[in-house]
Amino acid sequence: MTTPVALRDVTYAYGTGDLARPVLRDVDLSVAPGEVVLLTGPSGSGKTTLLTLIGALRALQTGSATVLGQELAGATERQRTALRRRIGFIFQQHNLLGFLTARQNVAMALELDPATNERDRLARAGEMLAAVGLAEKCESRPDQLSGGQRQRVAVARALAGQPGLILADEPTAALDKQSGGDVVRLLRDLARRRGVPILMVTHDPRILDIADRIVAMEDGRILPATEAEPASAP
């Protein structure tokens, strides 16, 4: 079985020529099937950049990265778009479409698959919302939901497309501690049951316990594993 994420010697710099500023240096990282990996580190250490590279949102510069079987070095825009469909993204902001209901937002992740029909999509979106505890809020618009509820809709959207990998960048940053903790545990549980690996950037010490493994970054490098210990459940 191949590893969902395997990075080797990934180096990345913003800017070109004299202005080039490396933010990732020789990063090696792999995520095993079903594994929940948390990425921590000080601000500016390159965590978000790493996540955008793995999520095929940016083109790889040097090194090699295989994500869900797709080699990203030299991948075309079309290949990267196709790969993104197989990844569930959860952003800092919920980024739901304001003019769609919760159910329609979740269904957007399913419309990418041409083999589905509208009724199945809406039914699946409804099941997904029920799974995140929002069965009653299917027809609400994002502005009628609380922050935690919106982020749970985002979780439902990320999981609805049956992704092979979940990428999340500080999903609790915009939430209070209670609802932030609830959302990531919900995400972890749902992903676990489906065997989907999660790679999550977080600063939030309260959620470190959900991890199978914690990876720490500093100044564009991944620190040796001994310095990062999985926290035990509180």
């Binding site: 079985m1 191949t2 969902p4 699946r124 049956q162 990998l165 049951r193 065997g195």
Partner: peptide, 22 residues
Amino acid sequence: RLLPWAPELTGDAAAPAPPPPP
């Protein structure tokens, strides 16, 4: 009753073929 998890999405070449779409 949970959504089916599709192993082929993890890049597992040995995964069984998904059921044909309706």
